[in-house]
């Protein structure tokens, strides 16, 4: 069984890796953890900080799951998760703007990928998407022969 680190062990160097709350972190991950510490001023220990960061990741994953129609355990309110993610998006707007991702996001909202193709072309759940009857013939006309 893996040995749990004592509070004194936390953050100690183990080669190029560091143990924090039983998580084996690389040097760069340690540096990133220190950088985000400022976002969690209420954390009381390294373990508490690790737990808070983990919870944040869990919330994001729940939001991702709900977004694609996944089912989450009872007791989690969809509205609450949406608000948490909205807060994250708002916080990250300057970064998205600086890196040009906001523009891409707006374009995506204006023209959702696949919207034209899937919504219109999937006739009913469970049915095979029909390939347009004209498509096979069009291949012959532009240099496609028969299967060998």
């Amino acid at each position: 069984m893996a040995k749990h680190p004592s509070p004194q062990d936390e953050g100690k160097s183990s080669g190029a890796r560091h143990l924090v709350a039983s998580l084996r972190l690389s040097r760069s991950e340690m540096a990133q953890k220190e950088a985000v510490r400022v976002l969690y001023p209420e954390s009381s220990s390294e373990t508490d900080l690790a737990l808070r960061i983990w919870r944040r990741g869990l919330q994001l994953d729940l939001a991702r799951l709900l977004s694609v129609g996944g089912v989450i355990p009872g007791g989690v309110d969809e509205q609450q998760v949406a608000m948490l993610v909205l807060h994250d998006v708002l916080t990250c707007l300057p970064l998205l703007q600086r890196t040009g991702r906001l523009h891409a996001l707006i374009a995506l909202l204006a023209h959702p990928p696949l919207a034209a193709a899937t919504a219109e072309e999937h006739e009913a759940p469970g049915e095979a998407p029909e390939i347009d009857p004209s498509a096979a013939g069009s291949i012959d006309e532009i240099g496609g022969g028969d299967f060998l």
């Binding site: 193709a117 347009d132 096979a136 069009s138 291949i139 532009i142 240099g143 496609g144 299967f147």
Partner: peptide
């Protein structure tokens, strides 16, 4: 199992003129 020869540049024609399900 099967091979389909296809003119190289025609791939572009297909990708620009057809949807993934073959509609114009």
């Amino acid at each position: 199992a099967h091979v389909l020869p296809f003119a190289q540049t025609s791939g572009t024609v297909v990708a620009v003129t057809r949807t993934p399900t073959g509609k114009p």
